[in-house]
Design a protein around this nucleic acid. Structure first.
Length: 363
DNA sequence: AAGGCGGGGAC
DNA sequence: GTCCCAGCCTT
């Protein structure tokens, strides 16, 4: 560690002064309700502020309290989460709400260890909730804070390496304001989100510029160090939009325990190596008991964290409804209700594609 | 096309 | 502890 060239008190007071003027007005900053703070923090994991805001407001309009959320069925929670990604967050949110009601008499705990017992809350989120909702000291090391601290101290090692991680948590703890945890937590996250951004940080506007060792050495563009990711493997699937005479589409629900658990999708089948799309669509049609001719609609691409998916989309109109729709996890959904269904992102794109093509064909 | 992003669970 | 998994948005 270097000697004290970064007095924590001065950093903290500069940061708080900056936040008073430049802090963002966000929906979850109008409240100290731990339920709202918790909801916002869970949504903000892996997601940007702009993407979260409409989901946050819609969610609260449906579930105004932790008790209301705990009483709701998981499916209605997933409905409101569809499109946000990382759906285990929604399942954990629901489970945690029930734990708060049952184990904590409906009141969120302020203790870090107790917060971390709730599924979906790790060390950083616990610190954020404790700081923001309860105004008690709680260190945070989320992506924004990690970047700010790496630059402030010119950390040139891999920020995810365990030794660096440990060092960063120590820095986060010693910097956390004991006098104004609520403001400090939001200030440092705002700094990372608005000025100390991953690319092209706006150092001239930064209140911590005088303390920043990366800036002093012109390293702000190279810190935090990035590790190159291996290219993601490609996968393909065929997707079938089966339409009955009234325009209703067949959908199925994915099992709760896997990827995209509990979300809905159109019937689909993977295209294995060496297979043709034609062969796969024939097999899928046979499985569903459909013998009408499929009509090609187009192609949709969607990238997940660990693979890139290409969906080749077909449409098929049927007069006799296949028996498969009688199973519990499959149903026919009229067009008006399809928009509200919790379809996962890739098949939302599929729906958009086929809707646009249908409109175009009418003209 | 590539980078960024917290926590859970398996090992 | 260490790895592996996971979906979307921004650049």
């Amino acid at each position: 560690m270097s000697e004290c060239s970064c007095p924590a008190e001065d950093i903290s007071s500069r940061l708080l002064a900056w936040y008073r003027d430049a802090g963002r007005a966000l929906p979850w900053r109008n409240t100290r309700d731990p339920y709202c703070i918790w909801l916002s923090e869970i949504m903000l994991q892996q997601t940007t502020v702009e993407a979260v805001i409409p989901y946050y407001e819609r969610f609260l309009a449906n579930f105004s309290s932790v008790a209301a959320l705990a009483a709701a069925p998981l499916d209605s929670v997933l409905d409101l989460w569809a499109g946000l990604g990382y759906y285990s967050r929604a399942r954990n949110l629901h489970k945690a709400a029930r734990m708060v009601v049952e184990d904590f008499c409906g009141e969120f705990p302020a203790d870090l260890a107790e917060l971390q017992r709730l599924p979906g809350i790790g060390r950083s989120t616990a610190g954020a909730i404790r700081s923001i909702a309860f105004d008690l000291p709680g260190p945070i090391l989320d992506g924004n804070v990690r970047r700010v601290l790496c630059r402030l101290h010119a950390v040139t090692t891999d920020p995810r390496a365990s030794a660096t991680e440990k060092q960063l948590w120590q820095r986060a703890e010693s910097l956390t304001s004991v006098s104004r945890p609520h403001d400090y937590a939001q200030a440092i996250m705002d700094l990372g989100a608005t000025l100390c951004t991953p690319r092209q940080p706006r150092c001239p506007l930064c209140p911590l510029r005088a303390h920043c060792q990366a800036f002093a050495q012109s390293l702000q563009g190279d810190i935090p160090v990035r590790h190159k990711k291996p290219p993601v493997p490609k996968r393909a699937q065929v997707v079938l939009l089966l339409e009955d005479q009234r325009g209703a589409r067949l959908v199925r629900k994915r099992p709760y325990d896997g990827m995209l658990g509990g979300l809905w999708e159109f019937p689909a089948a993977p295209v294995e190596a060496g297979e043709t799309t034609t062969a796969v669509i024939s097999r899928l049609l046979a499985t569903l008991g459909v013998c009408s001719a499929p009509e090609p609609v187009g192609v949709v691409k969607h990238v997940y964290s660990h693979f890139a998916l290409t969906c080749t989309v077909f449409r098929c109109r049927v007069s006799l409804l296949p028996q498969v729709a009688k199973e519990e996890d499959r149903q026919w959904v009229p067009p008006t209700e399809l928009a509200a269904l919790a379809l996962h992102g890739a098949h939302q794109k599929v729906l958009k594609l086929v809707t646009e093509k249908t409109e175009k064909d009418k003209m």
